[in-house]
Structures are given as C-alpha cells and as structure tokens.
Amino acid sequence: MQPFRLIVVILFYLNALPVMAQSGPETIVKDIYDTYSGPGQIGLWPSDPGPRAMFSARLRPLLEKDYERAETDGIGLLDFDIFVDGQDFDLSDVEIGRAAVSGDRATVEARFRNFGEPKRIVYGFVREDGAWKIDEVSSPDGEYPWALSELLSR
C-alpha cells in the first residue's frame, strides 16, 4: 500500500471507527460509500488494518491473512475493490437500502453505477458484543457473482 494512502485510511478510521462501531448497518454502508465520493477520495481496502475492524470475528482472520499475503507476495486473493465490484471507481446514483433486521442479523443492499454500469452489493451483518459488524459482502448479479468469504477461502 502506498504510504500516503495508508496515512489517509488510518486518519479516516481513527475518526470514523468509534462512530461506525456504534452505528446501525445502514449507516455503516453509507459511511463506506462516503469514502468514494468527492474529490481526492480513495475508497477503502477491506484487508487494511483500519477497515478490518468493521468486519465480524469470522471474516477478520481471513482479511488479516490476505493482508499478510499481499504484503509478502505483492497481491492477495482480493484483486479488485469489493465495495465497488471493480478495479477503479467512478460512482454515481448511490442508493443505500433499508436494513432488513432479524434478531442479531441484518442485510443491507447498496445499488449504484460504477463507470455507468449498474452494480448491487449485498452486505450481511451480525451483532457482536453489541455492535454491528459486516459478516459478508457479496455481488449476486452479473456474469461473475461472488461472496467475500468464498474469495478469501481459496
């Protein structure tokens, strides 16, 4: 990771994580897409140490392993940005759906256009220690559907 990008990500999360940890699923997804909007925004990389805190106890070790793999080999299993379902981003028409909550689980859909192409990302949440954590990210549509847990388990 480039040093400047790492500094920006760390500063964002030092300010945002306390709020995001207490936020509901919709707010967490909105906060993710806020990092992609506006000039100079660089988005997030889920396996980086700061963003990793948003994820469940089930996914954090997989993300940490992928981060270590990328640091050693230059590339991890994640070779695209899961939040935009692509290598690069030019997002428009971002819509965050209402959370469907069932006990300690919730689902939120994000719909947007990336370089004009329609995308749908589904976020699965679990409540851990009183806070909502991302337990799955998936793109069920298109030619190559995927789920984060499956990508990281290869």
Rank of each mutant, 00 (worst) to 15 (best):
L44D: 04
L62E: 11
T35K: 09
R69Y: 02
D73N: 14
D85H: 07
F89K: 05
G40R: 11
V137T: 06
E64R: 10
R113W: 05
G43D: 04
G76S: 00
E109M: 00
V122D: 03
R111T: 09
Y144L: 12
F4R: 15
P145Y: 06
A53R: 13
D31P: 01
E71I: 14
P118F: 02
I121F: 05
Y13V: 10
A53T: 08
P145A: 00
K30M: 05
L6H: 11
F89L: 01
F89W: 07
K133M: 03
F83T: 08
L14I: 11
E150N: 10
F12V: 07
E109G: 02
G38F: 08
I42A: 12
V94T: 11
A70L: 02
F89A: 06
M54I: 10
F4D: 15
D48Y: 13
S47Q: 15
L62T: 06
R111E: 02
E143V: 12
L62S: 08
S37N: 13
F125T: 02
L78I: 04
R69F: 08
I32Y: 11
L6C: 08
A99R: 00
G97S: 09
Q87G: 10
E26I: 07
L148C: 05
Y123P: 05
M20H: 08
R5L: 13
P61Q: 05
E128C: 04
S138P: 03
I10E: 14
Q41W: 07
G124R: 10
F115C: 07
Q22M: 15
G124W: 02
E109S: 11
E95H: 12
D85R: 05
K65G: 13
V101I: 12
D88K: 14
E117N: 07
V126S: 02
S149Q: 10
G50I: 08
K133P: 01
I28V: 11
D141W: 04
I75M: 15
G50H: 02
S153D: 12
V94M: 02
A16W: 01
Y13E: 00
Y123F: 15
A131L: 12
V9D: 15
E64T: 03
S139Y: 07
G40H: 09
Y33A: 10
L44E: 08
R5K: 14
L77H: 06
L152A: 00
M20G: 02
F83Q: 00
M54Y: 03
L14F: 06
K133G: 01
I7K: 15
I7E: 15
E26V: 04
R113I: 03
G97N: 06
S153M: 12
S92V: 09
R111V: 05
E64S: 03
D34A: 15
D88V: 10
G142F: 04
